[in-house]
């Protein structure tokens, strides 16, 4: 029981870290630009597909991952220049529609290029083993690496945001947009950088999970909506909130699926517990969101609602 708990806990953290990488860029875009971007999930998917292709071309997952970063950065830049840039001053409805159009184009485009069959990428030999945790319990090295890389990214982001000039502008922009432009900051290029950087983080997340998940055209969708839940829980514009929200969602979702039925069994008969658990588990994160919103409409770390 404790060993299962530990494993599921690590799985939850790993899923949370993944969600954080996706949500971090998204929450900045929402907070600073007041912009709804539905196309963020497909960039995560594109990252995974690019990682597959680059890995095959170079014969190395590591190189593939490295190449994916600038490639998704470029995707972000191009989308910003061609589409997003023209939408900043538009109503939310326009932003929703245009980015929804992008989702249709990119999802279908990916199917045209890579087909609709799931793809996979070989895990590097070095990371394919498992390490002992406690007793006979082992955990895959690769998942630990994902956690480590995600945490490192979070720390790097935190350093950028708290210690650098651009980070100061970001923080100021997330709380008060008018002030940032009043300070004479070139808001356009700041926006471009945030977008491209956010896209790269999403692409990084996609590339990192490519060896442990199947890469298919639907992979961006559910993750996008979970990233929304993360942002809503954490508070729009707050990277700290995104981190807390992502871990919370990752843990609740993973643990709920494995322990929900077990907990329910203590006061329901086994078949009813199994059935109720299966129905409730996927809904848990949304219920969590609803509860948090009822208490704090602006999210855990949100400045405004």
């Amino acid at each position: 029981m404790t060993s299962l708990f530990l494993i599921q806990f690590l799985n939850g953290v790993q899923f949370g870290i993944l969600l954080f990488l996706i949500a971090a860029g998204l929450t900045l875009v929402f907070g600073i630009m007041d912009f709804v971007n539905l196309a963020h999930g497909v960039i995560y998917m594109v990252g995974a597909y690019l990682a597959v292709t680059f890995s095959q071309l170079t014969g190395s997952y590591g190189l593939g991952l490295l190449l994916t970063l600038p490639a998704t950065l470029l995707v972000g830049l191009v989308l910003e220049l061609l589409v997003f840039r023209k939408l900043y001053d538009r109503p939310h409805l326009d932003q929703v529609l245009a980015t929804f159009g992008l989702v249709m184009i990119i999802s279908e485009g990916v199917e045209v290029i890579w087909g609709s069959a799931p793809l996979s990428v070989r895990m590097p030999e070095l990371l394919s083993g498992s390490v002992p945790l406690i007793g006979p319990l082992r955990y895959p090295v690769f998942r630990l690496v994902v956690i480590g890389a995600g945490l490192a990214t979070a720390v790097a982001l935190w350093l950028i945001i708290t210690r650098t000039r651009i980070g100061m502008r970001l923080r100021a922009g997330a709380t008060n947009r008018a002030m940032v432009s009043a300070l004479g900051v070139d808001i356009r290029s700041l926006f471009t950088i945030i977008f491209a950087f956010g896209a790269m983080l999403a692409g990084f997340a996609g590339a990192m999970v490519a060896p442990i998940l199947t890469v298919d055209p639907g992979m961006g969708e559910s993750v996008l909506i979970l990233a929304f839940v993360v942002i809503v829980i954490g508070g729009i514009g707050s990277v700290k909130g995104a981190f807390a929200g992502a871990l919370l969602v990752g843990l609740v979702d993973t643990m709920g699926r494995s322990f929900g039925p077990i907990i329910l069994r203590s006061f329901l008969d086994p078949s009813a517990a199994g059935q109720t658990g299966r129905v409730l588990a996927p809904m848990l994160v949304y219920i969590l969101m609803a509860v948090i919103l009822s208490v704090r409409p602006a999210g855990l770390f949100g400045a405004r609602s």
């Binding site: 709804v36 929703v96 969101m289 609803a290 609602s305």
Partner: peptide, 23 residues
């Protein structure tokens, strides 16, 4: 209880919850 972007995302999230319920 929320406005703007929040409202859009939350309605989307609740629909997804219904989706998973039926799944």
């Amino acid at each position: 209880r929320t406005r703007g972007i929040y409202f859009i995302m939350i309605t989307l999230a609740f629909a997804q919850m219904a989706y998973f319920f039926f799944v």
